[in-house]
């Protein structure tokens, strides 16, 4: 079984030769290769090279054509501050102040901001790994892009004070995600992961999620499925237990669990949805390989009977993580069952 077959089989609860392992190695790939994060995030070819290096080094089951959470907002006109060794931040939000939504158009992924570099990364990764390893792109979920266009507080206040305007904004951000995701698939990504941290119950109440976010998310996933995505993968950070039950209706087939979510509870709520997670990100920085191995084995045991599981971290593996700890995670899936 190659990685792509293994991952697809796990998502459909079919037998696999071993449990797939997809640690969320994004910026860490740069650090591992001795490349500065700031350069990695602006150069698709460099990003692809580092991702391939990390894949060869750790031998896990995916590569990521993924930069950071600011690609879409930058493409739409927000300005960023870049750092040599850290993720960039938004310096000015495109929709701050009196700027109107109707002054925005869905950006062309072939041209706007760093989008073409993301596509380049997807293309190179796919050319190299072909059908052996899933090439995972990334788009921001509708809620997160809304908060990245307005600033998170302004976005939340808009949602409360002018719900119709906010709904229009979410329609727009969903459209941006759809278009960007489809372009990633055309460039070679097997699927884009939908990353929606700002939709976390740590930020918005579950009813808000159900009424406003879910319908748009459904649209995004439907479009990806129609375009041939083998898996619809959703990533919402933080304590997501209260919203997990909504996922299947949105077309989610693989749900990321952050470290604070109880996997047993998640299994009960999502009996037919493949789950990935959920080691604590900080453990990869401050823990030991023995601790990572123990945590990994605990999860592998927990899911041994049910299946529908991919071993991973709860969220991004911090760039400054110890490589031995990531190796220990991967190694756990290679042990005889």
């Amino acid at each position: 079984m190659n990685s792509l077959e293994r991952v697809i089989a796990a998502v459909h609860f079919q037998p696999t030769d071993r449990v797939p392992v997809m640690p969320q190695v994004f910026g860490h790939a740069a650090v591992l290769a001795g490349v500065r994060l700031g350069a990695y995030l602006r150069d698709g070819a460099l990003l692809a090279r580092c991702q391939l290096h990390a894949l060869a080094y750790y031998a896990y089951d995916a590569v990521f054509a993924l930069m950071d959470v600011n690609v879409e907002t930058e493409a739409l006109g927000s300005t960023l501050t870049y750092h040599p060794d850290q993720y960039p931040s938004v310096r000015s939000y495109r929709l701050a102040g009196a700027a109107k939504l109707d002054t925005l158009a869905v950006p062309d992924p072939q041209r706007a901001g760093r989008m073409p570099e993301v596509l380049k990364a997807a293309r190179i990764l796919r050319q190299t790994v072909g059908r052996d390893v899933p090439v995972v792109g990334c788009v921001m979920g509708p809620m997160t892009l809304a908060t990245q266009l307005l600033g998170i507080e302004a976005a939340l206040y808009l949602a409360i004070d002018h719900p119709e305007q906010f709904a229009d904004l979410l329609d727009f951000t969903a459209e941006v995600g759809m278009r960007f995701g489809l372009a990633q698939m055309e460039a070679g990504a097997h699927l884009p992961i939908v990353f929606d941290p700002s939709a976390s119950p740590e930020v918005i109440p579950p009813a808000f999620y159900r009424e406003l976010v879910l319908p748009r998310l459904t649209r995004v996933f439907t479009a990806f499925k129609q375009a041939g995505a083998p898996i619809n993968w959703l990533h919402t950070a933080g304590m997501t237990t209260p919203i997990l039950s909504f996922y299947p209706n949105a077309g989610v087939e693989l749900a990321n669990l952050d470290f604070c979510v109880d996997p047993q509870q998640a299994m009960q709520v999502l009996p037919q949805t493949c789950l990935d997670g959920n080691l604590k990100p900080l453990l990869f920085v401050e823990g030991t390989p023995a601790e990572v191995a123990a945590e990994s084995l605990r999860l592998l045991h927990l899911f041994a009977h049910r299946g529908g599981f991919i071993l991973s971290s709860g969220c991004e593996i911090p760039p400054e993580s110890q490589p031995e700890n990531i190796a220990a995670l991967v190694h756990a899936t290679r042990q005889p069952r």
Partner: peptide, 11 residues
């Protein structure tokens, strides 16, 4: 601090 953009909690 530098490199961290999460400001909701601070606010």
């Amino acid at each position: 601090l530098e490199g961290d953009v999460h400001d909701l909690g601070k606010n």
